[in-house]
Design a protein around this nucleic acid. Structure first.
Length: 492
RNA sequence: CGGGGCGUAGCGUAGCCCGGUUAUCGCGCCUGCUUUGGGAGCAGGAGGUCGCAAGUUCGAAUCUUGCCGCCCCGACCA
């Protein structure tokens, strides 16, 4: 019908775009490279935010908000960071428009409003935050400083994709300051764990935790840890990063504290973030050719109830049963929608909620009421079962739990069968072309080889997994000795 | 920035090569009736600066030139 979705097999990236648009997650906007997040997509983001925010608070963090604009002089203080982002920064140079006298009805930049100093629109907030932390930190008693902010950032990407890479996106960025390196490293790893837990338990997306190579490291970081997810097309997606920043920013912004012995030292820093890109990960990890498949824990609507009736009398009888059921479900903290709109018929609604990835659908008609049952349909497996009205809320709760586990297990099984060892360059290339996924291979540890492999195969080193098994071997490309395998993949 | 594609109603499109009444069709929308267990049927109706601008012409969605925008592929990407 009008909502045909391109199949994954036919064109995976078109399938993705179709889903995002047709399921109502987002829309293209009048601004190149920017998208509108629609209510359904935003509801998904709010659910992610709520879960993450609680995890941040539970680990001792507080939220704050810092400015969108970063004066250029501050931005450039941490040199590596500044250079890393320089190519993708939007810059504000003027603060006023005026009427264009030469062309009626149009405005022009007022040349008299040139700023003394340009303002960078934050691509990330280390600079503005560390210039502030300087004033907040004097003593070890001020540490650790554990702050997170929910914000938008702008990175002027050449090529964009809905949710996966847009010029402006929403994210959270944690910025912490510590008295010791060990403590900062512990924080970095703790937040990586938080992200991994969120991805696996809430999004039902299994991830590999690892360390980035120097090449792939965040500009200005000493170490970048990441979680890497695998999409259904065999491409990897970086789903979150946590950075140990050492004393780089403290030195750049002169942030020192007195320790217990009244000795001055620079503080140790971390930063960590996840973005609306996670929505893209969610879509690509679970969905099928009929639409989204959302994990119950994040789905804006967990259960939709569709009435099937002839005439007002039947409708009234159904309403009575459903209203009671809705109350029970809500009491059990289940997000339920009763769609009794008369605009569309049941069949249309079935397809629509499947497109939107609602985990469970309850169908209820006169026949069911007579038998005190309902029809329950699972989005993930397409199974339909008949359940008694009695104790339905309890059973629905259990089913939602089952679905959450089931889609995780499915994604996990896919991931496990798509980590493939390769021991020769030929094998490496064939695997990339035919199977995709992560390829576990030896690497000689040099940036040159990493670059060369990327150039020849389009695959990058996604990470060196944490607690990686040490194993002597020979580099896949150069044959030079190697102590461990690393994970390669083509990536988003 | 290079290569490709597209721009006609809210969405998807035909017409364009070869200029000529009132711009095609489907979905959606509005009204009414019948319907409702997998994207309903019938009848009636509303909705258009044919991306923008200039040009050629008696006449331009159609031809010419310029511009704008978006999508896809590549280069780029904590």
């Amino acid at each position: 019908m009008s909502k045909e979705i391109t199949s994954r097999e036919q064109d995976y990236s078109k399938w993705y775009n179709d889903l995002v648009i047709k399921a109502g997650l987002a829309d293209y906007s009048a601004v190149r490279g920017c998208m509108v997040i629609k209510p359904y997509g935003y509801a998904l983001w709010e659910n992610m935010q709520a879960a993450l925010d609680k995890m941040f608070k539970d680990t001792g963090h507080q939220n704050a908000y810092f400015p969108l604009f970063v004066p250029k002089s501050l931005f450039e203080k941490e040199e590596e960071n500044a250079e890393g982002f320089a190519k993708e920064c939007a810059v504000v140079t003027h603060y006023r428009l005026k009427v264009n006298e030469e062309k009626k009805g149009s405005l022009m930049v007022d040349p008299d409003s040139k700023l003394e100093e340009e303002l960078i629109i934050r691509p990330t907030s280390e600079a503005i935050i560390w210039s502030t932390y300087k004033n907040w930190i004097q003593s070890y008693r001020d540490l650790p400083l554990l702050i997170n902010q929910w914000a938008n950032v702008v990175r002027w990407e050449m090529r964009t994709r809905l949710f996966l890479r847009t010029a402006e996106f929403l994210w959270q960025e944690g910025h912490t300051a510590h008295a010791t390196a060990d403590e900062a490293i512990a924080e970095t790893k703790q937040m990586l764990e938080v992200y991994a837990t969120f991805a696996e338990e809430w999004m039902a997306v299994p991830v590999v935790k690892g360390v980035k190579t120097p090449n792939e490291r965040f500009a200005g970081a000493v170490d970048t840890f990441c979680i890497e997810a695998l999409m259904q097309d065999g491409k990897a997606l970086q789903a979150g990063t946590s950075h140990f920043l050492g004393q780089n920013f403290a030195k750049a912004f002169d942030v020192k504290f007195s320790d217990k012995q009244n000795k001055l030292d620079y503080v140790w820093a971390t930063s960590w973030g996840v973005s609306t890109r996670l929505i893209g990960a969610l879509v690509m990890a679970h969905s099928d050719d009929d639409g989204l498949v959302l994990p119950p824990k994040l789905a804006p609507i967990q259960v939709v109830i569709v009435p099937i009736y002839k005439g007002d009398e039947q409708k009234a009888a159904i309403d009575e049963v459903v209203n009671k059921l809705v109350k029970e479900l809500k009491a059990a903290d289940i997000r339920v929608k009763y769609d009794d709109s008369d605009n569309s018929r049941p069949g249309w609604k079935f397809a629509e909620y499947e497109l939107k990835g609602v985990p469970l659908r309850i169908g209820i008609g006169a026949r069911d009421i007579a038998n005190s049952v309902v029809e329950v349909a699972r989005r993930d497996t397409r199974e339909k079962l008949t359940l008694p009205l009695e104790d339905l809320a309890i059973n629905i709760g259990k089913l939602l739990h089952t679905i959450q586990e089931s889609i995780y297990n499915k994604a996990f099984a896919f991931r496990e069968t798509h980590i493939t060892p390769a021991d020769s360059w030929e094998e490496f290339l064939v695997l990339l072309e035919t199977k995709g996924g992560f390829i576990s291979a030896h690497w000689d540890g040099t940036a040159e080889t990493e670059e060369k492999i990327k150039e020849l195969s389009k695959a990058t080193i996604r990470c060196i997994p944490l607690n990686n098994a040490q194993e002597a071997g020979a580099c896949i490309l150069t044959g030079a000795p190697s102590e461990q395998r690393v994970l390669f993949a083509r990536a988003y």
